[in-house]
Write a protein that binds this DNA or RNA. Structure first.
Lengths: 335, 335
DNA sequence: CCTTTGCCTGTAATCGGTTACATCCATTAT
DNA sequence: ATAATGGATGTAACCGATTACAGGCAAAGG
């Protein structure tokens, strides 16, 4: 029945005042007579008027919306990070939108365009396909923060765990429990985090004076399919590893499943260590030993840093590493 | 270095034409001399000009963005639906934004405001806390489609599986395989789908002339925690059920895990049937027997229906049920 | 009684685009 | 030679808000 939304003009007409006065009422300017305020608010009520964002934003250059750019939401890992972002956003009366790039850089550019044109006030990247230079440039112009995943050499704020240390510690834990032939499944050089985790793994091995065997590093990725592929490769090895460390829980689940089909039980015949501590990890069989990231806090902190930058474009670029934790469950054999 | 973005005026000035001409070039109007087009495009190039969405949208009332409203992304189920939506959106040069309501209706209202004010061209709801009347009203004014989850009595388009039939079929499958005491875990009346599934379960039981036992219906929810709670209740029952049918895979995973801790193996001592066929289902131990929904197609179809409605506000309201499939794996004992 | 002060409100410019309409000029038809 | 035609472009109104500035009016001060 109501074709079009009421505009500020309609309200002004009904209240018998100018649009300026209506706007002043809307923005709580104190220079309006209480009587007039009442007339206006009555008119607003009567017309069920809601101010139009576009007009407002066009003037104000503020949307109170931020965008989270995420490569995928299939990976359970991100959901808790996003919840953390939302919590902090809510506290500051901001709204969160999610953009799923799918790893496609054209799609990513479209979302960045939204930022450049102030459809959102800032972006938190959970991943990006852009080069360090592009990111630094964007970060110089607009509020941008990275979380979980960094891009080497990019001058933007980052909240994450220290992937190198975490992987190193996880590997050392395996070594301490008597494992010597440890395979490592990661996403290769695709992500900076993968690179760092690989380095952490390698250096920990080195510390124990175990010769590095490149065949044990399987850059299959972080997905279910990656785990399946890794399992197949492992089953073809002449000497089986006594432990497998995967850079994602997701891949660990499917790897365990595949190995079981071949009669090899994780936590009995072989040790498996995951990474991320996704919600499923504790319910899986065997319950997965993994690195727990403070996902919620990472998200929360990233949002706070973004707000700092929105409020002050010259806020310093910082890198914050949050504590991780080794979650010991049943998939790794202990000495 | 570049403080502000170039505007259409800057381009006009540099090209030595009016803003109208620039706008015409931008919008591929054919009434511009090729020579002039070149001047303008050169200027655009030189200034690295990108048209501002806000100004454009304010006039055009078109954003080529749609919003998907989802209660949570912790649930793995939604990701494939969203991928389907994205695929269809991409084909029609639309962009997808995700709004996570967290079940909070104030948050939901904020996103709806975006639609009302044309910050997006339409919304696909994967769930809503609104009443049927509110939804019908919104649907009358703006392009809105529901997917997966309906709201009884709401006059809006819907794409889903037939939850009643699916639950009924799943229950019948359990009955056919000799199970007689079947517990059912759902979200109670919270979701219409839950209600329908409960009804499907109940009617199937009735078909087999088994007296309905209300104690066997556990409205714990669809989350990991729900599965844990359900397991605890089941373990306290004097007579154990011989099968448990859960309205979500997620809850099934944690239930299986809890039962195992009590020495009860799903697929050996008890049967467990899930719902959704989330990615983890096939890798879980035991691999989960469940109802597979065509999530991708649901999303794709929902997007297509939304586009129909965006293009023609009077497009008919339709309900489309897509085929589901019983995915038989190892968690249900067969006769 | 006239001027000043200050509160309240309206007018109009503005944000960055789009587009109806007017205008100009070169062709073509009469 | 004049009028009609139509292509290319400019002018200005408009979308829905915000806000600087101006102005009106009543109370206070001289």
């Amino acid at each position: 029945m109501v074709n079009d939304l009421a505009t500020i003009k309609d309200v002004a007409k009904l209240a018998g005042v100018s649009v300026a006065t209506v706007s002043r009422v809307l923005n709580q300017s104190n220079s309006v007579k209480p009587e007039t305020v009442k007339q206006v608010t009555d008119a607003i009520e009567a017309l069920d008027y809601h101010p139009n964002f576009l007009g407002r934003t066009l003037r104000r250059l503020e949307t109170r919306k931020i965008l989270v750019m995420v490569p995928t939401i299939s990976n359970q890992f991100y959901s808790r990070v996003i919840r953390g972002i939302q919590a902090a956003a809510f506290d500051h009366r901001y709204h969160v939108m999610l953009g799923i790039s799918g790893g496609d850089s054209e799609s990513e550019q479209q979302y960045i365009e939204m930022l450049r044109h102030r459809l959102v006030d800032g972006i938190i990247f959970l991943h990006s396909g852009m080069s360090a230079e592009e990111i630094s440039e964007l970060g110089a112009d607009c509020p941008v923060v990275f979380a979980c995943e960094q891009v080497e050499g990019a001058r933007v704020s980052l909240v994450s765990i220290n992937d190198y240390n975490a992987a190193s510690e996880a590997t050392t834990f395996l070594l301490q429990n008597g494992h010597r032939r440890i395979a490592f499944v990661s996403a290769g050089d695709l992500y900076a985090s993968s690179k760092l985790r690989t380095k952490g793994y390698r250096d920990a091995i080195g510390q124990y004076h175990i010769p590095f065997d490149p065949h044990l590093v399987l850059p299959e990725g972080l997905t279910f399919n990656a785990g399946v592929r890794a399992a197949k490769k492992i089953l073809q090895m002449e000497t089986f590893p006594d432990a497998v460390f995967l850079a994602s829980d997701t891949a660990a689940f499917s790897l365990i499943s595949e190995l079981r089909k071949a009669g090899i039980q994780a936590g009995r015949d072989i040790s498996v260590m995951g990474f991320d501590n996704t919600p499923t990890a504790e319910y899986f069989s065997p319950a997965l030993t993994t690195i727990s990231q403070p996902q919620f806090d990472i998200g929360k902190r990233a949002m706070e840093l973004l707000l700092d930058r929105i409020q002050d474009p010259n806020a310093p670029v910082v890198t914050e590493y949050l504590p991780y934790r080794l979650e010991i469950r049943d998939s790794v054999l202990l000495k």
